Computed example of a mutant assay.
Amino acid sequence: MRLRSTVAAAFGALALIVAVPASADAASGDFSYTYSGLDGFPQIGFLLDPPSGVCITLPEVADPASSSPAHTPWNHTDATATVFAGVDCAGDYFTLRPNGGHASSRLKLRSVVFS
């Protein structure tokens, strides 16, 4: 009887694993932003298929003492992007809708998290 219960439980767990979609841990698409390069000219940064639920500090603007914040974000992922004024998802924030949400150059950001 125990063997039958164990086999049934294992089969049920396998069926549940197969039924759950695998894409739950990443946003599909790209997220872009503008920042000032070392030469002072605007550069475009990209995050391709970023992980969901993880705070991402934008590497080009990670040090507030030596860089201006990024601006003009475009969210071309399938997830909502919440951008933050500070590193490590701290400070003021703004939410960008999926599939084309964007903001002007007045919105300053240093980090982002995708839902």
Rank of each mutant, 00 (worst) to 15 (best):
S111N: 06
G12L: 08
S36G: 12
T95Q: 10
L96Y: 05
A24C: 13
L38T: 07
G86C: 05
L47I: 03
P50R: 07
C55T: 08
F11M: 09
V113F: 05
V113L: 06
L3I: 11
A22T: 07
C55H: 04
R110N: 02
I44H: 06
S52C: 10
L47S: 13
G29V: 06
L16P: 02
A22N: 11
S5Q: 13
R2V: 00
F41Q: 13
N99K: 11
A10N: 13
R97A: 15
T72F: 14
P21Y: 06
H71V: 13
A27W: 00
H71F: 15
A15T: 11
A90C: 07
V113M: 08
G86Y: 06
A81F: 03
M1K: 11
A62P: 03
G29Q: 04
V61P: 01
D30A: 14
S115R: 15
P59W: 09
G101R: 01
S52P: 04
I17S: 08
G40C: 13
N99R: 12
M1V: 11
V112S: 07
D63K: 01
P64N: 04
S68T: 09
L107T: 00
A90Y: 03
L3F: 15
A81S: 08
T34G: 07
V18H: 00
A9M: 07
T34F: 10
N75I: 07
A85Y: 09
R4Q: 14
A19V: 05
A15K: 12
S115H: 11
K108E: 11
P73S: 03
R97F: 15
L3M: 14
S68R: 09
L58E: 06
D63W: 05
R110G: 05
A10P: 01
S68A: 10
P69Q: 02
V61Y: 03
D88A: 14
S52H: 09
G12M: 06
G29H: 04
P98C: 01
A79Y: 00
T57L: 00
L47P: 05
R106A: 12
F84N: 01
L14I: 09
G53V: 04
Y33T: 05
H102W: 13
V18W: 06
A19G: 01
V61D: 02
K108V: 12
Y33A: 02
A9E: 02
F11P: 00
C55N: 06
H76C: 13
A8H: 08
V87M: 06
D39F: 10
V113Q: 08
T82H: 01
S67V: 13
A79V: 00
D39M: 11
Q43M: 13
P73G: 02
C55P: 11
A10I: 09
S68P: 00
D49E: 10
V7K: 09
S23H: 10
G45Y: 04
W74Q: 10
S23W: 00
L47C: 10
F94Y: 14
P59L: 02
L16K: 08
H76R: 15
H102T: 12
T82V: 02
P51K: 14
P69C: 02
A81D: 04
G37D: 04
A15D: 05
I17M: 14
R106D: 15
V7E: 10
